[in-house]
Design a protein around this nucleic acid. Structure first.
Lengths: 307, 307
DNA sequence: TGGAAGTCATACAAAAATGTATATCACACC
DNA sequence: GGTGTGATATACATTTTTGTATGACTTCCA
């Protein structure tokens, strides 16, 4: 029933060696010594009957078998980290670590005030904020809660669509004073545009009718939304950003009737975490805070009311 | 970056104690001794700062904190088991363990001949077949490949809809000789019916128009499809089963034009496993075998052709 | 009520894992 | 071309972990 008599620590050492590329590096990362790591790797290889690394003088080069093993070891590591977070808070207390993942814009521009308010109310909660634009794997427990713009499509996840953030075209008043103000979508061709670098399916799906602009039209192409926003603020040209952000930054909205994109916001958590008071609380705070930010009129569905 | 200096084995011991309910039992399961397990638990409690069990003379009773920790430890265990399977086959060889999960009917009636053919072709592959009607968690790597009747809804999974198995009403010839043969759906009210016990969303969705029969009409109610099939074979009455199975069992199909339900079959695997030759091979064999079983006319999409 | 069988906890010896020190080798750089 | 840096592998002492043996306790059942 239980897995073989393999020690789980062998996988831990294996993963460290794989990540660091050398026994010495792994030893440093784990606070152990190089001979121990060497023995662990050898023992794992003997147990599995598969060579995992080819020894080189400048480090250990993983074999194909090692690379095949890697995702499983990573899954173990994520679960272990998740367990530590789970244990960081006593069951009935509002304290402990909660790891949140969100896109860069949301992590930098939207979440901080919400987290600040939450922390004032519950100072025992420690936040880990991982900002990345690729969808992080709640599957593997790399985070406790995710703020996403796509529905999760997962049986084992609890998700709430909290709001739909409108996206609008914005520019700085200085830019408009110098370059004039576009009256129609067609006018945009005569303007300096800020846009994406690589076209994603989402962009393809939400490009508004009558706005065929591809990346060739952009004078500044970036997939870093923060850089794009900063460029708008700096008066570089015209670009798209979340309406609340544009408003907050004192930017001028352009063609509000022609450009009407919406970015749904989902808050997602693992079903397992439902029983954790602190994670449920953060989940609910996020739902409320984001709903308020997005200007939702309907009262958000919370976990606490649902259960 | 790395998780704290916690030994992963502590979680392994913790999980064993949780599953077995006592230090002694966990020691037996892990091939270790009771004092060692006791020390591990104490060490984990000290490291986490949370009591995990209340000691009783008849065993250890988990605290709420322990129950909250459990799913994460289970995730670690599944990942470890999955790693072992991954390592059981050399990368470029057709050998090693593949764990398949399927529903009971499919696991008992449909898969065995397919697996047998596969094993004749690739005798190095060892199969683990887990039959359960609840959806097993590929998320947590409880299995390598799943045969399901619902689309997976998972970003991290690779899925193929291989066929749509028709479901029909069947009865044994002996039963029909004694009770007569229904000519219309309405006739069914005068017959002995075999049906489900609990109504699932799938049943609600696929109930054919003009067939309002609820469980009250059934003389034998079971959610065990195998038992239902056996009852039909035994001449108990009229029930639904997969058309290929009914045909293979020599049963008589009833009202084929009025009853036209279809059960889609999906084969699903983890994206990570894509690089594993043996899993990809089993995946493709399953796709082919099930497509042939379901009588699909279009050639199935295989991984090997796709990649 | 008494005994059998199960549990956890503790003391001590044995085994196993770890760390220290050192030798050897490859690579980059002056 | 020599030298410094950083890598792995090995020998040996030390520390840590594990196992054994035993005691105290509870539960169950005759």
């Amino acid at each position: 029933m239980t897995s073989s008599d393999l020690t789980w620590d062998l996988f831990r050492s294996f993963l460290a060696v794989l990540r660091e590329g050398s026994l010495s590096g792994a030893a440093r990362a784990l606070g152990m010594t190089q001979p121990s790591l060497g023995r662990h790797v050898r023992e794992l290889e003997a147990s599995l009957g598969v060579p995992l690394f080819s020894r080189a003088s400048h480090g250990l080069v993983p074999t194909d078998a090692a690379l095949e093993l890697q995702p499983h070891a990573e899954a173990m590591a994520s679960a272990a980290a998740s367990a530590l977070r789970a244990a960081s808070g006593a069951k009935d207390e509002l304290r402990g670590v909660v790891r949140i993942t969100a896109s860069e814009v949301n992590g930098v521009e939207v979440l901080p005030p919400i987290l600040a308010a939450m922390h004032r109310r519950s100072p025992g909660i420690v936040f880990e904020l991982s900002t990345t634009n690729r969808t992080e794997n709640l599957l593997r427990r790399d985070a406790d809660i995710a703020v996403r713009s796509s529905p999760p499509d997962q049986d084992a996840l609890v998700a709430r669509k909290v709001c739909v953030i409108p996206i609008g075209l914005y520019a700085h008043a200085d830019y408009l004073a110098a370059a004039g103000r576009p009256k129609t979508l067609a006018d945009l061709t005569r303007h300096t545009l800020i846009g994406y670098d690589e076209e994603t399916p989402y962009i393809r799906a939400t490009r508004p009718a009558g706005m065929p602009y591809q990346r060739e039209f952009f004078s500044l192409r970036t997939d870093n939304d923060l850089a794009g926003l900063a460029a708008i603020r700096a008066g570089f040209g015209i670009g798209a950003c979340q309406v609340p952000l544009g408003r907050r930054a004192g930017l001028v909205r352009l063609l509000p009737k022609s450009v009407d994109i919406a970015l749904p916001i989902w808050v997602v958590m693992h079903e397992d975490q439902r029983t954790s008071l602190r994670i449920r609380t953060v989940f609910d705070h996020l739902v409320e805070g984001l709903a308020a930010y997005g200007g939702s009129r309907t009262s958000p569905k919370l976990l606490t009311s649902g259960a």
